[in-house]
């Protein structure tokens, strides 16, 4: 594998393209009377790039919130690499190697870009209070590694020159890249991107497409929610289409594009 940024990704070494990584079965989430996700079943395999699309309110972000244990499912199972996600807390999901970005950027605004990425290394390092106070050799070495890896990850997404700027003072596009860098620094096996191209101009979204390919070639499986169809069609090998919390179809970009149910969901049924 090539990219230094993700050197610690456990799964990357032996990536088997056809190996099941995420197995969702019968997933259901109700908010009171509202059925946000209904009996959803789908699989993601190691090394894939999968897009999740659907009209607003289809339940895409709810799905991410369920997978990352931000919400508890009403029913169904989600198994990630043999672990049941339904029983974990959010930080344990990240430790397992499943990490997300946010649709509305949620960086640590008053910290520098570099520190944002360093926070991502938290779950792969272990200096505690004692280490912080004494700064023995082990802690100093770990700090050095954290800094190096954080810089490499920033370079990987192409914003190393912004390392010392506060996250909130970065331009919008760079903030989106920083979110991805922060997520990558947790050493994930699968990354869930929530509308990474939203608000980017066409040049920036072309670069994003390249970046996502680079992430995948480093052995990280990518699932992305995206409305920008150029990005989706350019990247995804498989597309899952949600509407009203249900999967109405899945397949290759070519198949999905011609599917009558998809066209109906987006444009409304012909009368």
């Amino acid at each position: 594998m090539s990219g230094p940024a993700l050197a610690t990704t456990a799964a990357a070494a032996g990536a088997q393209p056809d190996h099941l990584l995420l197995d969702v079965r019968g997933l259901t989430k109700r908010f009171g009377g509202l059925q946000a996700i209904c009996e959803l079943s789908y699989q993601v395999f190691r090394g894939e790039i999968v897009a999740v699309i659907g009209p607003n309110g289809a339940g895409k972000t709810t799905l991410y919130n369920l997978l990352t244990a931000t919400y508890r499912p009403t029913g169904g199972t989600m198994v990630f690499d043999g672990h049941d996600l339904g029983r974990l807390s959010p930080h344990e999901v990240t430790e397992l190697g499943l990490v997300r970005t946010f649709q509305n950027i949620r960086l640590f605004p008053n910290m520098t870009a570099l520190d944002n990425v360093k926070v991502g290394r938290y779950c792969r390092t272990d200096a505690g209070l004692f280490g912080a106070l004494t700064r023995l050799r082990g802690t100093r070495r770990e700090e050095r590694e954290i800094e190096e890896q954080a810089m490499e990850t920033l370079a990987f997404v192409g914003i190393a020159h912004r390392a010392d700027e506060l996250a909130k003072s970065l331009p919008y596009g760079d903030q989106k890249l920083l979110e991805i860098a922060r997520a990558l620094s947790t050493g994930p096996r699968m990354i869930l991107l929530d509308e990474p191209a939203a608000g980017l101009n066409s040049g920036e979204s072309a670069e994003l497409v390249e970046l996502v390919r680079k992430i995948r070639s480093d052995g990280v499986t990518v699932v992305l929610i995206e409305h920008d169809m150029k990005v989706v069609m350019g990247l995804a090998e498989r597309i899952v289409v949600l509407d009203h919390g249900m999967m109405i179809c899945q397949g290759t970009p070519a198949e999905v594009r011609c599917d009558q149910r998809v066209i109906d969901a987006y444009l409304g049924k012909a009368v």
Partner: peptide, 14 residues
């Protein structure tokens, strides 16, 4: 610092 800035994001980052 991360918790002070955004607790939800901090959780999501492990």
């Amino acid at each position: 610092g991360a918790i002070r800035e955004d607790e939800l994001a901090a959780k999501a980052m492990g």
